[in-house]
């Protein structure tokens, strides 16, 4: 099967196989991505992020169902954590999306983080491009349940939806730096619970001080009951229009592409260093010296770098 040709013809199997190829870094993956990159850039990417158990999967399920009523082609990338000890993982986001699994207009892919920090997997960006060429008009990227600093989604999504629930902490949590700064649309899910109004007020206050040019809105929702969903879609659409009208859309993509290239360079350099047996041996020796306080880690780093030919 010529995977790229089949991908262009909207072949599910080809899209799935290409994502695996990239995730596993199988031979030829970079060549495939070179071609795919040129054809991509058409899909609108919506990030769904928030703490564990906030309802990200359920909300994604409902938002996608609403967009399907408008006939949009959708892809979902759902990321869950990989065990740092065994390399295994339980990817359970599909449980909330079972109705979508028979919809031919929806493609769902679960990904483990495989050691990558930041809330996504290393291959997420490539998977977005593949599903873009596959024909998805909207790609929803659901991050792992985030803590305070997993903000990588903003570099991958055009609009980032931050899903929160009542009772996560006081108003100081809301003004801390990190994930609270990255939302373009805020959703208080499970808004039928006690404390929802107070949470909304705290988030609103935080946003009043925000220096973003477009102040994000705060929507109340009860995703399991399908409440507040249309309003959230409207907010995503408004944000999209704003990005396009102000040319920020283009600007953001330039920024994230630069970052992408830098990441590729970093990966290349790390490969050069750690796939070299001689350097690994030297690293092991120097590590002992550093532990025994014969050498300091900065000198050790300098010594290693001197032996690396790029």
């Amino acid at each position: 099967m010529d995977l790229l040709q089949e991908l262009k013809k909207h072949n599910k199997r080809a899209a799935a196989k290409l994502i695996t190829m990239v995730e596993n870094r199988n031979p030829g993956y970079q060549e495939a991505l070179k071609d795919i990159h040129k054809l991509s850039g058409n899909a609108y990417v919506v990030g769904i992020t928030g703490p564990p158990g906030a309802g990200k999967s359920t909300l994604t399920d409902k938002l996608v169902k609403e967009l399907r009523k408008k006939g949009k082609q959708i892809a979902i990338i759902a990321v869950d954590p990989t065990s740092p000890f065994t390399g295994g993982s339980i990817l359970g986001d599909r449980i909330r999306m079972n109705d979508l699994s028979l919809d031919a207009g929806v493609f769902i892919r679960s990904m483990g983080t495989r050691g990558h920090l930041g809330g996504l997997s290393e291959s997420t960006k490539a998977a977005i491009k593949i599903l873009d060429v596959y024909g998805a008009e909207y790609i929803f990227v659901e991050t792992v349940g985030v803590g305070q600093s997993e903000v990588e989604i903003v570099k991958n999504a055009d609009t980032t939806v931050m899903v929160l629930v009542p009772g996560l902490g006081d108003d100081i949590q809301a003004i801390k730096a990190g994930i609270m700064e990255i939302g373009d649309v805020f959703v208080i899910n499970k808004a039928d619970r006690e404390g929802a109004n107070r949470t909304k007020a705290e988030i609103e206050m935080m946003l009043d001080f925000s220096n973003k040019e477009k102040r994000p809105s705060v929507q109340m929702a009860v995703a399991v009951d399908n409440k507040g969903i249309i309003e959230i879609i409207d907010e995503i659409e408004k944000h999209k229009e704003y990005l396009i009208d102000t040319n920020k859309f283009h600007h953001n993509r330039i920024e994230s592409t630069k970052e992408e290239i830098v990441e590729i360079i970093k990966g290349y350099i790390l490969d050069k260093i750690f796939n070299n047996q001689h350097i690994n041996e030297e690293l092991n020796q120097l590590t002992k010296d550093v532990v025994e306080r014969n050498v300091d880690p900065y000198t050790a780093g300098d010594l290693l770098l001197k032996n690396i030919k790029l």
Partner: peptide
Amino acid sequence: RALRDAGMEVIYTGLRQTPEQIVNAAIQED
């Protein structure tokens, strides 16, 4: 859980699946 601890990536789809849902998911998840 056992497969996870054996280092596998487990896509758990939950209860009451039709054969069609299972096979569709298997294809998309490769």
